[in-house]
């Protein structure tokens, strides 16, 4: 069988990956890990373009704007930082009271947000900034939302048209916030445990959430209705929707602290492909030696990348058979 190109392994991190993200065109792949590094790679050949140096702790999140001009990272060193994508220069440092868990650009790139953890007596907070103001060197947030004590945001993305923020919480709640008023518009209690990631589909009409309760669920962005549920035997750390085929890719595995007690075979460290509509598992890809922390689809849908607890990123391109597969029901 003639297959596609071989997978590329990116070894830029010494500790486990926390998030990977493609830019709009998919030619750049951004990755952050627990070893305070933020890397950017060319996705077509795995060449490292550069690193964003400056963080002093685990980097939890990374995002890039529509035009691939700015990069935003959030770290456990109690800061979120804005970088120039092309040069790796740090433009702004936002000091925060606690570590930054999630961050992101709005679709237009005009607004940025980041959320902080609820530790050391501080509540979990959502910060919004106007990017224009920030580049003019005012680090005043445009808006701050305080969450009730004991509630923490663990995953978040901007909703369509820059109007809403979708947040996943440590108790499994998913909320949609109005960015203007700072109020919760819709709330969903479908997951039972910690939400690990939220990723929108290409046109932002639906998103897939990955939870520790070993399921991933497809939600309607507008109504926050659960459309589909994908069940696995272990917790799901990340899920992404294919922009090309009706597939969802799930990354997960046992918790890191349980890994040493089992063999890799038992650990189920495989990326799982599910059919978007039929909720059936249709395939698996092996390769990681530990749980898969983060997965991302190339915007073309012709390749995908996964980052694992083992510190490696694997970039896979699909072979021609993949595009011909039809689910027989």
């Amino acid at each position: 069988m003639r297959s596609g190109p071989r997978p590329i392994i990116l070894q830029g991190h010494e500790r486990s990956l926390t998030q990977i993200k493609y830019n709009k065109e998919g030619d750049l792949l951004f990755s952050v890990s627990k070893d305070k590094l933020a890397n950017v790679w060319f996705s077509h050949n795995g060449e490292r373009l550069g690193t964003y140096d400056g963080h002093n702790g685990t980097v939890w999140c990374i995002d890039v704007d529509y035009a691939s001009k700015y990069v935003l990272t959030g770290s456990a060193d109690q800061s979120a930082r804005l970088w120039e994508c092309r040069t790796g220069k740090q433009l702004v440092k936002f000091a925060t009271p606690t570590s930054v868990r999630t961050c992101g650009f709005s679709y237009s790139g005009k607004t940025i947000f980041y959320t902080t953890d609820n530790v050391m007596g501080h509540p979990c907070r959502i910060f919004f900034h106007d990017l224009k103001d920030e580049l003019a060197q005012s680090t005043e947030p445009k808006k701050i939302i305080d969450l009730p004590a004991g509630n923490k945001i663990t995953a978040a993305v901007f909703g369509p048209l820059d109007k809403t923020l979708i947040t996943g919480h440590d108790d499994g709640t998913i909320n949609v916030w109005d960015v203007e008023t700072g109020k919760i518009i819709k709330s969903s209690q479908e997951h039972e445990k910690y939400i690990n990631s939220i990723q929108l589909n290409g046109d932002q009409t639906s998103f897939v959430s990955a939870s520790k309760d070993s399921t991933a669920k497809l939600f309607d962005t507008e109504t926050l209705e659960v459309l589909k549920t994908y069940k696995t035997p272990t917790n799901v750390n990340s899920a992404a929707i294919s922009p090309l085929r009706p597939h969802v890719v799930l990354g997960g595995g046992q918790e890191a602290r349980e890994v040493t007690t089992t063999s890799t075979r038992v650990g189920k460290f495989e990326v799982r492909f599910f059919h978007l509509i039929f909720e059936e598992e249709i395939g698996r890809v092996k390769g990681h030696f530990g749980p898969i922390n983060t997965v991302a689809f190339h915007p073309s849908g012709k390749s995908f990348a996964s980052g694992g607890e083992d510190g490696f990123i694997r970039v896979h391109a699909f072979d021609p058979d993949y595009y011909e597969f039809e689910f027989d029901y």
Binding site: S3, R6, P7, I8, I9, L10, Q11, G12, W41, N45, G46, E47, R48, F273, E280, E281, I282, G283, R284, V285, K286, G287, R314, H316, F318, D319, D321, Y322, F325, F327, D328, Y329
Partner: peptide
């Protein structure tokens, strides 16, 4: 220019066999 073998390596082929029979 070009990938540095220290950070970028080509892995062994892996196969994704898609099947409707989970």
């Amino acid at each position: 220019p070009g990938p540095d073998p220290a950070t970028t390596i080509v892995a062994d082929e892996v196969f994704l066999v898609l099947t409707a029979k989970s």
